[in-house]
Amino acid sequence: MSNAAVVKLQQKSIAGNSVWMDDNFGEAIHLHINDFRADLTCKEFLQMTEDACQIIDELVSVPGFRAADYDPVFMEQMLWKHLLCLTEVKRDSVSISDLWMNQPRLVRVKDSHMYRVLAGKKKAYKKKGSDHFGQSSKERMEGIEKSVKASGYDEAKGCVVVYGDDNIIRDGQHRVCALWQQQGNVKVPVVRLYFSDQRPINTKMRSGPFGFFYHCFWKLGEITKRRHFSLKNIAKSMLKGGYFVFKKKRITLPVRMSEKQIAELSGILEK
């Protein structure tokens, strides 16, 4: 029997290789790269993560940078892309009112969706799920709110990260919103990361009434710089996707059952 208790820790494609990690409870943690698999005990896996932090620090080799200081989710989603171009790390202190949030038009913290929800001015969160495992956006926000209430802004848990001098929060949006809501417009310690491959962002344009469209054009400009971009490739993948949906993969509609029927059967069959 395969282990029933398998939790997928991560799964992604890296340079065309299928990479995934899963935790097989009671058995081992598996690291898969295509058909290659490494079996690790929990202790070995934790040691591997310590080694990973040290290797990142060595590869980056910028004074003041330590991989362990940054949120792993932020590292995995955004930071890794630019780390090899990191040139300088500075510590600074900025008032919350001077910070921007990317939504995707740039807004000040007090105008952001997150802050308005905390202040009770908005009802629902835009995103149901968050990027953090097993937590909805709401749960994450509530957890951070409690943490900030209990211990204030704890630098040990990670600083607010901005790139260069643009004051746009790259990591730490939730904490900053919770801090403003509880303590008002205070100064927060931030980490400024300077990259050789980052162009400065025109905050005036991005925050203006046409900021959304400016952001879209900027994003399009970034996409066109990618190696495999071409109209031909886009057309190809659209056709391929369409063919796949309509020809190769038969769409099977779910069996029609009323909600009442489903509830009745589930109630019995769940035992």
């Binding site: 991560q10 990479v19 934790l46 990973a52 990142i56 792993p72």
Partner: peptide, 8 residues
């Protein structure tokens, strides 16, 4: 490496 840290 970033993926491994996130998995942890």
């Amino acid at each position: 490496l970033a993926t491994i840290l996130r998995a942890r």
